[in-house]
């Protein structure tokens, strides 16, 4: 029991830390990547709470698809992307 609660405490602290890091990231790109990792960490918490259905949905939609949508829009919405792609001609 006590070992389990230690895991829970570690998970909660890292989720809170990751949320703060996500919102205070200097670059928008970093924020998006940190948000995706936050989604994956939260998936583990859903498993800890016995919510397997929600965990599968969160891993596929919350972490995967939302991250893809944000990254696709980021290319156009910020000039970070332009600066990054200008330095190298090869987009791949």
């Amino acid at each position: 029991m006590s070992a389990e609660i230690i895991i829970d405490i570690i998970l909660s602290l890292s989720v809170l830390l990751l949320a703060c890091l996500t919102l205070s990231a200097r670059q928008v790109f970093t924020a998006i990547v940190l948000y995706v990792s936050l989604g994956l960490l939260v998936t583990i918490i859903w498993v800890r709470l016995n919510a397997w259905d929600v965990a599968i949905a969160e891993a596929a939609i919350g972490a995967g698809l939302t991250g893809a949508l944000l990254l696709v829009a980021w290319r156009r919405l910020s000039n970070e992307a332009a600066a990054k792609f200008e330095s190298s001609n090869d987009v791949y």
Binding site: W52, D53, A55, I56, A57, A60, I61, G64, L65, A68
Partner: peptide, 21 residues
């Protein structure tokens, strides 16, 4: 057991996203 329409739909959409990318 765990699974269902939403999860399945998301995974199939993921296949399409890979094709599109």
């Amino acid at each position: 057991s765990p699974g269902g329409a939403f999860q399945a739909g998301a995974v199939v959409a993921g296949a399409g996203v890979a094709l599109s990318l």
